[in-house]
Design a protein around this nucleic acid. Structure first.
Lengths: 129, 129
DNA sequence: TTACTAACTAATAATGATTATCGTTACTTG
DNA sequence: CAAGTAACGATAATCATTATTAGTTAGTAA
């Protein structure tokens, strides 16, 4: 992503968090990761989950999604790809193609779509950021 | 969007909110709308802003964006279109084309992009939702 | 016009996800 | 081993949003 200040020390907790993320096709939120990691490290703190998820995404090692109201979801796959968000069960899944003309994708019914580009706008580029 | 239960009564406050949204190219959040509407209706409550923005987006009259951490932004244009989010100043602007191969769009530098489809997943479709 | 009532509002309390703080633990290098 | 410090656990604080409550307004019908 941007400049990447790598972690200075490895930690069992962070490894466990990454492992949990890598082992699922879900795009879980912090609480889900917390529950899973607790099975290995029962006394891990929720703050540790939040801190590491935040740092990992800042370092470009995982992807932070803003798919749902007020909740962040995390994705082990960092390469650009599209997601489908179910308005009924709330699941977030990867989609195989990017086509903005269809009303059905991978068998899921689409109500609407959103494309977001993230970066630095031309005004900020001028002001030497 | 979905089924649209229209508002049963008109309200000066809601009209003012829509007017503010229609009059800007920005994609403001609730606080920004609040500050603007207060210029017309000084004693309007923040709760009224939140309630009406929520209802308006449920009715498909405006679009609710989840572009940034923990903040909802609203868009008067409801048709499917792409947005650019600046990581420096936080501005959200419409982009003119949807092309996932470029690294620059409308003069803005792109770090990464996100495509989201919203709807009902195939599993939920089966369970007759 | 007046009474009725649903829908709306302002004010404010509650919620819930996330972030910050702070004392402690445990690498890591000399 | 000891000093320095990254990362942790526990918990308090924050902040956007939602819910609640009591009061007001607007449409309707007698």
């Amino acid at each position: 992503m941007n400049t990447v200040p790598t972690f200075q020390r490895k930690s069992i907790q962070r490894d466990a968090i990454l492992e949990v993320l890598a082992s699922t096709k879900r795009h879980p939120d912090a609480i889900w990761v917390y529950e899973k990691v607790k099975q290995q490290i029962p006394n891990i703190s929720l703050g540790t989950i939040y801190r590491n998820l935040s740092e990992l995404s800042k370092n470009g090692m995982i992807l932070e999604l803003h798919a749902k109201d007020n909740v962040k979801n995390y994705d082990f796959t960092v390469s650009n790809h599209a997601h489908f968000v179910c308005s009924s069960c709330g699941s977030i899944t990867d989609v195989s193609s990017t086509d903005n003309t269809v009303s059905t994708i991978d068998g899921n019914h689409i109500d609407y779509m959103s494309v977001m580009y993230y970066g630095v706008c031309k005004d900020c580029l001028k002001t030497a950021n």
